[in-house]
Amino acid sequence: MTLRFERLSRTHDRAAFTCGVASLDAFLQRSALQNARDGLSTTHVLVQSRHPKRILGYLSASTAEIELAGLQPADRRGLPRYPVPALRLVRLAVATSAQGRGHGELMLGEAVRRALAVREQAGVRVLLVDALDERAAGFYQAYGFRPTTRNGRLLYLPLG
């Protein structure tokens, strides 16, 4: 089974996608393409080479900013910008029929890969993720993400 990532397009069968969370299905079906056109977020889908229309999972990312608090100017260590530019993984979903095969890990790996590529291009230093619930937050923590104090469902990974 050869898996690959593609940028979401009209050729993908968005209507058939269901992951068990209505808001995640609705975003893919109604908003993801429009958001990409408007430059609000980009969405990539995981497909199998032999069935390229069937969406096994998707991930959406947008740019974000992180405000640092309580820092003396000397502590900012010459950061070129303030706040710190970040990439934010706003949604990650695996189709119900494709769950339990490690696709979540694969897509998280893809998100981090993309974030590292953006870091090279645009100086993004952090990847933020929005976890849907406690279980999802635990998933990200296992991969080294740290929850923010204010909001345990928002986690971050420093990119070095």
């Binding site: 974000a64 405000e67 502590d75 260590r77 950061l79 923010t148 104090t149 204010r150 971050y156």
Partner: peptide, 15 residues
């Protein structure tokens, strides 16, 4: 879409 605000401790760790 709002900026994420980190606590002082987190800010230092991040830096």
């Amino acid at each position: 879409h709002q900026a994420t605000r980190l606590s002082a401790d987190e800010s230092r760790r991040l830096l």
